[in-house]
Amino acid sequence: MIAIRNLSHRIGGAPILTDVTLDLPKDGITAIIGPNGAGKSTLMGLMARLLPIQEGKVEVDGLCVTRTRTDLLAKRLAIVTQRVGVASRLRVGDLVGFGRWPHHHGRPRPEDHEAVERALEAFDLVELRDRFLDELSGGQNQRAFIAMGLAQETDWLLLDEPLNNLDMYHARALMARIHALSRAGGRSVVMVVHDINYAAAWADHVVALKDGRLADQGAPRDVLTAPKLSELFGMEIGVEEINGRPTVLHHA
């Protein structure tokens, strides 16, 4: 479980997150939804000790993220950020290989190579493994970074808008993959998604943020209702039930 207690964050005096208290359940997929600027990435960054915690507390499976050594946390929790940033000129295979670095610190063992192979295969990157990152398309680049996070094989995998840039095929492949992991592999995934229908189809738990505050949380069918979503995003949103799942019709 990731336990978030009274978490507040300010940047230059402006409140970004206000008093967020939340438990992210272990096993399964948690989807974080909310409008642009709601504080989703900030929350992820605080959970993954990428940002210093100003007020409040975050514990990952009982480990306080500010007080636990960063190299130990790297074996428990992996994060793929929203903006992977200016890419180094690394080969895809080497980048994914660095996902294993927390486990071997420079001396890869056979199981590390196997984990890299699995991650490359899972994201259709085997043929691209010798390409340099700066010679990839946006979606391929995104997949390479997600594969690195996956190769880290941590209990917790945090993905900030992983579906960005991905085509339908690879988006579904990613969701199917992490769903399988969260079931068979006993791993927990927290992801920020903008396409509510992905949350509805795959998530076990949904967290809604608005203006830096927790707006709602619960099972998809309880959170993803027409009144709640309309309120969250400030627009009329229709929700239909298709194949037993809430489905948002936001194009009409």
Binding site: A48, L50, T70, D71, A74, V84, G99, Q152
Partner: peptide, 8 residues
């Protein structure tokens, strides 16, 4: 950020 994520 990537460095911290990998525990460096």
């Amino acid at each position: 950020t990537a460095s911290i994520g990998l525990g460096l």
